[in-house]
Simulated scan of single mutants.
Amino acid sequence: MSDNLIERISTALEAEYTLEGLVRQLLEMLELVTNMESTYLTRLEQDGSQQHILFSRNSRLMQIPEGLTVPWGDTLCKRAMDEGRRYTSDVPGIWGDSKAAKALGITTYVSTPVMLADGSLYGTLCAASSEKCELSERSEQVLQLFAQLIAQQIQNEQLLKQLQLANAALMTSSYTDDLTGLPNRRAVFDKLPQLFSRAERDARYVLVAFADLDDFKQINDVYGHDTGDEFLCAIGERLKEGVRYDEILGRVGGDEFIIAGAGPTDFAKAQHAAKTLKTRLSSMLTGDYQLHATMIKYAGPSIGVIAINPADMTPDTALRAADEAMYQDKKNRRK
């Protein structure tokens, strides 16, 4: 039995990657070792008010349902911990005033706390029966071992979750412009190939706009870099509010921004859509900007917008073409 139990534990640890999967296997083994009707894992609320039955195994008449919630103060788990009594085969005689124990018909009960590495109490690992059952020292040792294994799995999952959150935050940071909160150059260049691939599949044109903030250097020189940064943030806000949900938006340089999206399937309509996009962006970014220290009447940026067939151009060549169109617009605005 010992060799078989050790083999089953080893198999479970190798095969199960979730808390639920591991616990369910351990509860089944715990039932065999203790010969109890029900085995279960509980979780204690952080404020210590309630206890929840997280997972349970009921092999005979006694039914301890998963999801059951009881006041922590009325539980056998708390009483056992407070009194240093992990096991008893006379629950009615010792804890007869426990409503939860009476409702469940518990006569024999054994539990051990599931303690995390920081010393906090996660919950308890328990076994119970409606009949009197003798518990061997070996069974108690197995119960404590299983509680330690569960605690380790909980900590592993918590660590994994923390790593995932940290990685998500790092990814967000690495793809976000620190000043404006817009996607940065890396984010734009990562999304453009996907846009081109979808557009080519759907036989649609791609609209690419390149906007450069004319006279931005003069704003910095006259009002200072803090005001310049505030102006960039205001530009970013207008873009975030004005672009469509399916359009790619990003700040790709100091005062340069890119907007891209799928266009119509027809060439003439795509060219018209490019002109419409240019008008929309110009109207969006031109006008008065009430900043913290001053009001700036902004004449608008230079904007180059192209409609291209994604089968004929890569994202890189499309951006260069949009950049050239922007410089042509800049020349025309200076005439």
Rank of each mutant, 00 (worst) to 15 (best):
D190V: 09
F55G: 04
N4C: 06
K102R: 15
G304F: 02
D226G: 10
Q290N: 14
A117Q: 11
G84C: 05
R185T: 00
F257C: 01
I248L: 10
A100C: 11
Q158M: 15
G250V: 01
G300L: 00
L5A: 08
T88F: 02
T69Y: 03
G300I: 05
R8H: 04
A166F: 02
K217S: 06
V243Q: 00
A262K: 12
D212N: 11
S98H: 03
A80K: 01
G228V: 00
I303G: 03
V188N: 04
L76I: 06
H52P: 02
L135D: 04
A274L: 07
V91D: 01
Y205F: 15
K335Q: 15
T88I: 00
R86T: 04
K331I: 14
C233K: 14
L207A: 05
A15G: 03
D266C: 12
L149Q: 11
G181I: 12
P65S: 04
A322L: 06
I296M: 00
T42W: 01
L170Q: 09
K132D: 02
R79A: 07
F189N: 13
N156A: 15
L281F: 07
T34S: 12
D266R: 10
K161L: 15
G224T: 06
Q158D: 07
Y40R: 05
P65R: 00
Y223R: 06
Q50I: 09
R186L: 11
K275Y: 10
A147M: 03
D329H: 08
D246E: 11
N35I: 11
E31Y: 14
S59C: 10
A293L: 12
H292G: 10
G253I: 03
R8D: 05
L213A: 02
M295Q: 14
H292Q: 15
A100Y: 01
A203G: 05
L44K: 08
H292R: 15
L125H: 07
Q271P: 06
I296L: 09
Y205Q: 10
A169P: 02
A12P: 01
G48L: 08
P315C: 06
K297T: 12
R251G: 03
T11H: 15
D221V: 09
K132G: 07
A293P: 00
T294K: 09
K335C: 14
A209C: 09
I248E: 09
I306H: 04
D212M: 00
M62Q: 10
W95G: 01
R333C: 07
F196I: 05
S10W: 08
L160R: 14
S283L: 12
P71M: 08
D312R: 13
K161P: 01
R8E: 08
V188T: 00
Y245V: 13
R86V: 02
L76K: 00
N35L: 13
D90S: 12
K99E: 11
E140G: 10
F257R: 07
D329K: 00
K217L: 03
V206Q: 10
S38M: 04
E45W: 11
Y245H: 14
A80I: 03
